[in-house]
């Protein structure tokens, strides 16, 4: 029984160490400067950091295929950027507070496009 408890505790420790080593700031400077951060769900951000926040130009890649390349402000997608959806659709244009806000073009994977002013992810007709 003691051996089993020891084995479980030891396994948990090894797993925690392995997880801790595979997440966090993996390259560069993730406080002020340029660095790459890996999240526990394998989302990665590589780009500029200011006061430990994503700020400036960067690329955020989600494990399920969403990729945002562009400007960040206070860790949010804000400014000019392009979002690639997993199926190949894209939105290129202005962002604010993590949403499509401002002028932009949505292009479906089949080439169909919608261009205009967007507000919180919706095209204003």
């Amino acid at each position: 029984m003691k051996k089993l408890i020891f084995f479980i505790l030891f396994s948990s420790l090894i797993t925690s160490i392995a997880l801790a080593r595979s997440t966090g700031c993996k390259e560069g400077n993730c406080e002020n400067g340029y660095g790459k951060w890996v999240y526990t769900d394998k989302t990665t951000y590589e780009g500029e950091w200011v006061a430990t926040k994503k700020h400036g130009q960067g690329t955020e890649t989600w494990p399920n295929g969403y990729i945002y390349k562009g400007e960040f402000k206070e860790s949010q997608w804000s400014g000019i950027g392009i979002l690639f959806f997993p199926d190949g659709s894209t939105y290129e244009g202005e962002w604010a507070n993590g949403f499509m806000n401002g002028e932009g073009t949505f292009t479906w994977s089949d080439g169909k496009q919608k261009k205009g002013i967007w507000k919180n992810g919706s095209l204003q007709e």
């Binding site: 399920n64 959806f85 992810g121």
Partner: peptide, 14 residues
């Protein structure tokens, strides 16, 4: 349905 799939769908539903 994991969190990232939900967050992705939410881009189009504020």
């Amino acid at each position: 349905i994991p969190q990232r799939a939900i967050m992705g769908a939410n881009f189009l539903n504020f």
